[in-house]
Nucleic acid binder design. Structure first.
Lengths: 132, 132
DNA sequence: TCAATAGTTCTAAAAGTATGAACTATTGAA
DNA sequence: TTCAATAGTTCATACTTTTAGAACTATTGA
């Protein structure tokens, strides 16, 4: 178990950030870490989606967020303590994180409203499970 | 050759936008379309990267941008006319596109400066070609 | 009608992602 | 201590997505 890799802020790229946050599970995790910016560990996120997510998958998602420079993971005894690197990223790419987190709120609000109004499922196809 | 698909603005998702713009070639294309928001066709982009990009790949990139709702493609005689859907997206997700395009400018500026100062290649590993 | 041009679609290979199983590290009890 | 429990990582492999050459389609102008 080699120590976790965290890129230094100059090595953080927009592409990596966008890629990391283009996955619904990862934004959910990230939004949560940003929201309550304190103790957060993997097992809290076993149910971010409808289906429970296997822990190996979750671990990979955390790795993706870490390596994109979005979060910092630190071992606290037996579990993991994750914090967002918002402040650093804000300096490097002003407004980026805010805009993305905001857009997600808008989208979620829209979906909730639509669901309440007509009890239908969201129309948008998932990026990941799209059939070509 | 079925007519090109364009999602209606309500069906555009943040995930799809981020995913589309998490590819260096696609942001380059998109930034270009946004910048000079007029006639733009695929063959103008055969050299956006160091290596020339095959036209089938380019076509797929344009498709990705279209299906994410970022651009609109319209046939103009023998070639394609692409325009950004920034205005619509700005209404749905205020500030999102601006922040992303901006972040890319910052990154590009940083890389150019670093290159001029020390003639070294950018340190960041590509998201796409990362070895695990 | 035909050649040239611009782009799409098809297909197979390459790259990336998900997940069960095995493994590692830390803690707190017996 | 030693050991079981807990939390997370790594490995192997199946599955999905992306890439790019080849074949195809649509439009134009000679």
């Amino acid at each position: 178990m080699r120590p976790l890799f965290h890129p230094s802020i100059e090595d953080v790229t927009v592409e990596a950030i966008l890629h990391a946050l283009s996955d619904p599970v990862r934004v959910a995790i990230f939004a949560d870490i940003v929201g309550s910016d304190c103790s957060q560990n993997c097992s809290n996120f076993l149910n971010v989606s409808e289906k429970p997510i296997p822990k190996s998958t979750l671990s990979q998602h955390f790795k993706a967020l870490r390596e994109a420079g979005l979060i910092r993971g630190e071992r606290r005894g037996v579990e993991m303590h994750n914090t967002s690197r918002c402040a650093e990223i804000e300096k490097r790419f002003p407004g980026l994180i805010m805009a993305i987190v905001n857009a997600h709120k808008v989208q979620l609000a829209g979906r909730t409203a639509a669901g309440k109004a007509s009890q239908r499922k969201p129309a948008g196809r998932s990026v990941r499970s799209k059939v070509h």
